Amino acid sequence: MISCVRGPASLPRMQQRVVADSGTECNKAAPETIRRIRINNFIRSPAMDSATKQHLMIAFFLSFFTVGIPYWRIPYNTVNLPEALPVFGLIVAGGAAMILRLQTTATFWQIIKVMTASVPTAVFARVVWDGFKDPSSHNLWPFEIAVVLPVGFACAIAGALAGSLIAAMTGKPQRRKKR
């Protein structure tokens, strides 16, 4: 007996997918045989293994500190964002996104999200630190974050696209098999 899988009725019809256990299409007229829900990959991303999480964390903190340490050393009265962000740190953020795209099982958008967040997080760390010293120093901190967020996104997407292009030109990237 073939059991069918159907997406929940709350999803639009285009996103529902009915598949038999053997991988062939099922008859949609048999709702009593529905056992489990399978949603297309573009709705639910695959689970990350612990090594992928570690690689993402290492790349995040590498970018965070290579952007943050030179930026934190600049006196507050001379900071002009986004020009104050160190170019080397932004290149490291893009390079880390490229290496992650080539070497891990993380998806394209997971890499983009993590690497984009590293740049504004470094700026926000300065906002918090300076706020402890002088609470009136960063009155417009949301604008500071809004200014550096596109910069982080541009670095992350450039690096991830470069990694995807390199992977496409050299064949499939070497990815770890999930156990």
Rank of each mutant, 00 (worst) to 15 (best):
E83D: 15
L149R: 15
F60V: 04
R175L: 15
R126D: 05
R73K: 09
A125T: 09
P75L: 00
M48L: 13
V114N: 09
T116E: 07
R126N: 11
I58G: 12
F65C: 13
V5E: 01
S22Q: 04
S50M: 15
N77K: 12
H138E: 14
M57D: 01
P150E: 14
D130V: 13
W129P: 06
F153E: 01
A122V: 03
R35S: 13
V127D: 13
D21F: 06
G163T: 07
L56K: 07
C155Q: 07
K172P: 01
W109M: 14
V18D: 00
M1P: 01
Y71N: 13
A20Q: 00
V79E: 12
T52L: 07
A47G: 02
L140K: 03
V114H: 12
M57Y: 02
A158M: 08
F153G: 13
R176A: 02
L100E: 07
I58N: 10
R35W: 12
G89H: 04
P86W: 04
Y76A: 14
A117R: 09
I37S: 06
K172L: 04
P82D: 04
S10M: 02
G159T: 05
A97G: 06
H55K: 14
I2L: 02
N41Q: 00
I111V: 05
V18R: 06
A117E: 07
D21G: 05
G131N: 15
V19C: 02
T78L: 00
A51R: 14
F132L: 02
V79N: 11
A167R: 00
L161E: 06
H138K: 15
P135C: 10
F65P: 08
L85K: 12
M48Q: 04
I112G: 03
N40Y: 00
L81A: 11
V92C: 15
P120D: 04
V5P: 03
L81E: 10
I166C: 12
I39G: 03
N139G: 11
W129E: 09
A160Q: 05
V79G: 07
T170L: 06
F64K: 01
A30Y: 11
V19L: 07
L149F: 13
L161S: 08
F88M: 08
P82Q: 08
I91M: 07
C4A: 09
Q110S: 05
P86Q: 11
L56C: 10
